[in-house]
């Protein structure tokens, strides 16, 4: 019973995405079907591990700023998220 789920519109890799308010960027990326939040040092695709800001596996670029923790960031209108 959340208070009024507002809808947030933003973009992942240039494609528009709509999610309900309060969704984390990590969750939104998983919903979008993307399976490489980042590429590891040796090129492996990675998804979140800890979900709580500890492991740094969920790093993405948000509004041009690299290495942001997507699991600790809530989606906001107009946000530009870049994975890979």
């Amino acid at each position: 019973m959340r208070s009024m789920p507002e809808i947030i519109t933003f973009s992942i890799n240039g494609s528009p995405v709509r999610v309900s308010g309060g969704t984390s960027v990590a969750t939104a990326i998983l919903i979008s079907g993307e399976t490489a939040f980042r590429r590891s040092v040796s090129g492996e695709p990675r998804t979140p591990l800890c979900g709580m800001g500890v492991c740094f596996e969920c790093r993405v670029t948000i509004n041009g700023l690299q290495h942001c923790l997507s699991c600790q960031t809530v989606c906001q209108d107009g946000m530009e998220v870049q994975t890979g």
């Binding site: 999610v19 309900s20 309060g22 969704t23 984390s24 990590a26 969750t27 939104a28 998983l30 919903i31 399976t35 490489a36 590891s40 492996e44 695709p45 990675r46 998804t47 979140p48 591990l49 800890c50 979900g51 709580m52 492991c55 699991c71």
Partner: peptide, 21 residues
């Protein structure tokens, strides 16, 4: 264990709590 969609127990729970269906 580094494959996409292998996650922590709490990690996946946190994602579901944040709206992952």
């Amino acid at each position: 264990w580094t494959l996409p969609n292998v996650m922590g127990v709490g990690g996946l729970q946190a994602l579901v709590k944040s709206g992952l269906p």
